[in-house]
């Protein structure tokens, strides 16, 4: 019994000494903590400039409150630019509270890949961080936050609000973007944020394929795009109010031609049916192009395995010549 008590005492002592950080300077709590709320990346030819919006917390004097600072640095890669940024401050940046990752729409495919890989490697960055696209990543954090501590957290609220009001489901969380990159289409849709006279506006969305921005849509077009891709929840846009929407996908291959049918079923609570269907048809024609930005190949590969085996090696040819029909049940 005595031996057990000594043993338990020793184990507890070892645990207390080793697991509570009492090992020296590296773990000494700094007087100021730099909590990163959002990061942004801008292309500078072959280099990347990283911007970090931080909340600086004074741990020794809570009366001083928190303050917001923006830092930037450049590097050959995303990781290098963030390391240089951290080196400028000579304090570790804490990414545990990073809620936003903004990418410049002009980033090359490889640079975008570096951003994704760095965020995965840095386990501090939350997989649920929101990703956005912008052409003003260099001045994004210069805006004044309106309702929260930082512009980054403001934008999270704006994105949620647009999704709730307009029914657009961006699926732009970091993990959703990574998951979409693993699908056949490698297609994802990021909210597009514009900065105008010191104010940020979520003005639409950018469609990316293989880490490269391929199309830019304004809000209404974005909502119609989401209807076509079955990513629309209840919401309003223009003069329309739509709820309970579901888009069924059907596909057939006849005489070397793909026949794709999209059955859009929804409750049109407000707006003219003919006008809406006309807008959907025009959006489909405008966005169709030679690249499948609707992710039809994901649907085909999951639902029509034999058909997919036939078309996959020459999918672009089949897609370009495909007959796409939209049917409505409003």
């Amino acid at each position: 019994m005595k031996f057990e008590k000594i043993f338990i005492f020793l184990i507890t002592l070892i645990l207390l000494l080793t697991l509570t950080g009492c090992t020296g300077g590296v773990y000494r709590q700094p007087d100021q903590q730099y909590l990163v709320s959002g990061i942004a990346f801008k292309r500078d030819k072959s280099r990347i400039i990283a911007f970090a919006e931080t909340v600086v917390v004074n741990t020794e004097s809570t009366e001083q409150g928190v303050s917001r600072h923006i830092f930037s640095a450049s590097g050959n890669t995303a990781e290098e630019s963030l390391l240089n940024l951290s080196g400028k401050i000579s304090k570790p940046l804490l990414f545990d509270h990073c809620g936003l990752i903004a990418v410049d729409k002009d980033l090359s495919s490889e640079q975008f890949s570096q951003v994704i890989d760095y965020c995965k490697k840095n386990e501090q960055i939350n997989l649920a961080a929101y990703m956005i696209s912008s052409e003003n990543t260099d001045i994004l954090f210069d805006c004044e936050p309106v309702s929260t501590l930082t512009v980054s957290y403001d934008l999270l609220g704006v994105i949620d609000r647009v999704e709730f009001l307009n029914g657009i489901k961006f699926h732009n969380r970091y993990y959703e973007v990574c998951a979409n990159k693993l699908r056949e289409s490698r297609c994802f849709f990021l909210p597009f944020v514009l900065v105008n006279k010191g104010e940020y506006i979520l003005s639409g969305g950018d469609v990316y394929i293989d880490n490269k921005m391929v199309d830019s849509l304004e809000l209404t077009e974005g909502a119609l795009y989401c209807l076509l891709t079955d990513n629309f929840s209840d919401g309003k846009f223009e003069d329309f109010e739509i709820s309970d929407s579901k888009t069924r996908f059907e596909c057939d291959l006849r005489e070397d031609t793909l026949f794709i049918t999209l059955n859009i079923k929804a409750d049109l609570e407000k707006g003219d049916y003919a006008y809406l269907s006309d807008k959907i048809e025009r959006t489909l024609e405008n966005l169709r192009g030679n690249t499948d930005i609707f992710g039809f190949k994901d649907r085909i590969s999951r639902k029509y395995r034999n058909l997919w085996n036939t078309v996959k090696d020459n999918y672009n040819f089949y897609y370009t010549n495909a007959k796409i029909e939209v049917k409505y049940e409003f």
Partner: peptide
């Protein structure tokens, strides 16, 4: 996450829980 992305993670459930955030500092 979907099966393919989860399967590529070292600790899928821990990663899934980490996406649950609270508070004004995205904790």
């Amino acid at each position: 996450f979907g099966a393919p992305f989860s399967a590529g993670l070292d600790f899928p459930y821990a990663s899934a829980i980490s996406t649950v955030t609270v508070g004004y500092l995205f904790s």
